[in-house]
Amino acid sequence: MSNYGPASALPGDHIRIATDPYTEPFWQAAREHRLTTCRCANCGHCRIPPTPYCPECQSNRIEWPDLPGTGTIFSYAICTKSPYPDVPDFVYVPIVVDIDGTQGHGARLVANFVGDADEVAIGMKVKVVWTSINDGWELPNFEKA
């Protein structure tokens, strides 16, 4: 087993996001450090990224609940090469997280794990930490809960 050591999130000053009318409420909540999801106001099915129609009932009605900000690692990778030419190589851990307070599939988040890369495991409980990125937005990442 390799010894990767501490993993950090991608540097926020290198991250830009774009929004559309359906995704913007997610990011506006994130700006206030509230983790939310796009939830169908008709049947309760959750989906990320937010999209116009509920795949279960085709409703266009959406609500944005406050979630606990915790979840479980569903899968992950460990990367060692910097994605950016002007940033030296560092260890980062992309994770797929099943988000607590959502139901069914489709409301996962893909984020970075911040902490000891050698400790990461499928099934690990995690909680959100916020990374400041460009243009005043905040990005949800996760650390061990």
Binding site: I17, A18, D20, I48, P49, S75, Y76, P94, V110, N112
Partner: peptide, 28 residues
Amino acid sequence: AAPTAHNSFMQPSGLVGPGHLMSVLARR
């Protein structure tokens, strides 16, 4: 890739190429 409303939920994770994405499937 330039950020879009949808890839903004993926790109900031640093899964920069197809192999990075599929490594997550392999892990599972």
